[in-house]
């Protein structure tokens, strides 16, 4: 490998990597007042794949997400989206470039209706966000697209319901619809099935599989059966560091992983 790299101009290597990987974190480190929640993490998410980030509670998974979407600024390291360094951009700018996340705790707008929730996201590219002098008729053309998205996640019949009144599973579905509204190239999902009953897990898994087509997805997930039948590649974090990376087979047979993580979980 080393000799090959030496033979090829650096630029060519970089561009080859750009094409293969949609999202790359290099040497990511985040220190909270002396405590390193994330230490020198390297993460490369292949374009078009579903990549899982797993690890015990407090391993630093959410912090990694926060770094990748620039919700937090890394203490060290850099982030490349399609080969472009986005380490210095703000969250909103990162989102506009096609990297959109969901949150571990359902991130919906509880006092808006289901349709309005999605329409907020659609307004981002529609450019009416500051139009305070116009009536809502100005955004009526977005309703069709909003309903399509709600249809896609299977909650279109709730379009007029106040989002706070949805069941937990439907809230997660709404959050995914809102995220999809931005037509993100890369989606980051933080524990999409957390806190769900068994009956909700299966539909959400299928939904993620469906919406992942043509996109790149990085997800944090505790439910290992979801991980095993959904994800192409898995990165295991522990104490803020990468413990192992590979396919589900490789990772689940890794002794350190079994010891550190899977041994402690009864699935």
């Amino acid at each position: 490998m080393a000799s090959m790299e030496a033979a090829v101009p650096a630029g060519a290597v970089a561009s080859a990597i750009d094409q293969d990987y949609a999202l790359v974190g290099e040497g990511l480190t985040k220190v909270f007042g002396g405590f390193a929640a994330v230490k020198d993490v390297n993460l490369a998410v292949r374009r078009g794949s579903i990549h899982a980030l797993i690890g015990p509670n407090g391993a630093g998974k959410t912090t990694c997400f926060n770094l990748l979407t620039k919700t937090l600024s890394p203490t060290k390291g850099r982030i490349l989206l399609n080969g472009v360094d986005i380490s210095r951009l703000r969250t909103a700018e990162v989102a506009r470039r096609g990297l959109v996340r969901s949150f571990q705790i359902s991130a919906i707008f509880p006092n808006l209706t289901v349709l309005e929730n999605v329409r907020v996201a659609l307004q981002a590219s529609y450019g009416t966000g500051y139009h305070f002098w116009r009536s809502l008729r100005a955004v009526a053309p977005l309703n069709r697209r909003a309903e399509e998205l709600l249809e896609q996640v299977g909650i279109v019949e709730s379009r007029g319901t106040t989002a706070a009144e949805l069941s937990y599973g439907k809230k997660r579905a709404l959050e995914i619809a809102t995220t999809l509204a931005l037509e993100p190239e890369v989606m980051l999902l933080d524990e999409p099935t957390a806190g769900m009953g068994h009956e909700d897990v299966e539909p959400i898994t299928e939904l993620i599989r469906k919406v992942a087509v043509g996109r790149t997805v990085l997800l944090v997930e505790h439910n290992l059966s979801v991980v095993s039948n959904l994800c192409d590649r898995i990165t295991v974090l522990q104490h803020g560091e990468v413990l192992a990376e590979g396919t589900y087979e490789q990772v689940s047979n890794d002794e350190r992983v079994v010891e550190a993580y899977m041994g402690g979980v009864d699935e």
């Binding site: 979407t69 919700t71 969250t91 909103a92 700018e93 989102a95 506009r96 959109v100 996340r101 949150f103 991130a107 919906i108 707008f109 509880p110 006092n111 808006l112 929730n117 907020v120 996201a121 981002a124 590219s125 966000g129 809102t178 931005l182």
Partner: peptide, 15 residues
């Protein structure tokens, strides 16, 4: 109203 309900989410949507 969305900002009132959940500001970080609005930011993550690009506003």
């Amino acid at each position: 109203k969305a900002v009132r309900d959940n500001q970080p989410r609005v930011e993550s949507l690009g506003f």
